[in-house]
């Protein structure tokens, strides 16, 4: 059997605050094959982003991440020391954040930030690779943008730069945390097409977090539906979209806006 790219079992993430403890992710199991795209859908606050960050072990402190098993491509993430995680981050697993306008350092040229993902090698080669990647993600005038500061670019362009940065080391797993939510609808479509193309070209696994089922239908192989920190339904994208079993999934599907329809409300918890 082929080695799994990601194998998470019994993952719990909780945030202690004073006497109480907030459990953000509850008993989650995930499996991904190499090259697979897994979409995690759910409403705001359902624990999607925390789940993504816990794979990188970057959850906001103080937090506790516990799991029965957390394997990435043969590496045991659960027992990997911080130093090992640092080598993994940005190289084997990289991440695209939700809002590109806050994810870049506001006072540093983009090129300098891009090269940070490439710690080794000669400066000139690194620049060459960065420029090449920028043109592959469809950023016009890449040479000039390397010297630009983040606020001079539009959200869509910045998101392309961030995607380029995430792909610089040809990661095995790309985590995209709602990469289109902060963008205009017209720009979103372009970014989604870009993801679909890059996924084929790089043959990488992708953990795609979204609450937009239209996007998920275009990109994902499998879908996990999250609610209140738990995965309530997990299956192939065709099955979930066409024959949803869990009532919450059905509600989510009804919520997807259609032209001319009225907006239904989701039931209480």
């Amino acid at each position: 059997m082929q080695r799994r790219l990601l194998d998470v079992q019994g993952l719990n993430v909780s945030f202690p605050s004073g006497q109480e403890t907030t459990v953000a992710v509850k008993d989650v199991n995930l499996q991904m094959q190499p090259g697979e795209t897994l979409a995690i859908v759910g409403e705001s606050g359902s624990g999607k982003s925390t789940l993504a960050l816990s794979i990188l072990k970057l959850t906001h402190k103080p937090s506790s991440v516990q799991a029965l098993r957390m394997m990435f491509d043969g590496t045991d993430l659960l027992h990997l020391p911080e130093r090992g995680m640092q080598k993994l981050r940005g190289k084997d697993i990289s991440m695209v954040f939700q809002d590109p306008k806050t994810a870049f350092h506001p006072m540093m040229p983009l090129g300098k930030q891009l090269l940070e993902a490439l710690p080794q090698g000669r400066r000139r080669e690194k620049r060459q690779r960065a420029l090449e990647m920028l043109s592959r993600v469809g950023l016009p005038d890449a040479e000039r943008q390397m010297h630009a500061y983040p606020h001079t670019l539009s959200g869509g362009m910045l998101q392309r730069v961030m995607i380029a940065m995430a792909l610089l080391n040809q990661p095995k797993l790309l985590i995209a945390d709602e990469p289109t939510t902060a963008l205009d609808v017209t720009v979103q479509a372009g970014i989604i097409r870009l993801f679909a193309r890059l996924k084929r070209q790089f043959q990488m696994g992708m953990l795609f977090i979204s609450h937009d089922l239209g996007v998920v239908a275009q990109l994902a192989d499998n879908v996990a539906v999250m609610r209140q920190g738990q995965i309530v339904e997990y299956g192939s994208v065709e099955r979930i979209l066409q024959h949803p079993v869990h009532p919450y999934t059905r509600h989510l599907l009804q919520m997807a806006p259609r032209l001319g329809g009225t907006l239904p409300m989701i039931g209480g918890r």
Partner: peptide, 27 residues
């Protein structure tokens, strides 16, 4: 520490010291 661009610096493999020297301090 809670800002996205600092978290992003860790996500590309930055160490604590690297983040402090190249991101926090210039800011």
């Amino acid at each position: 520490q809670g800002r996205t661009f600092i978290q992003a610096a860790y996500a590309v493999g930055g160490t604590k010291w690297k983040v402090i020297i190249f991101h926090v301090f210039p800011y």
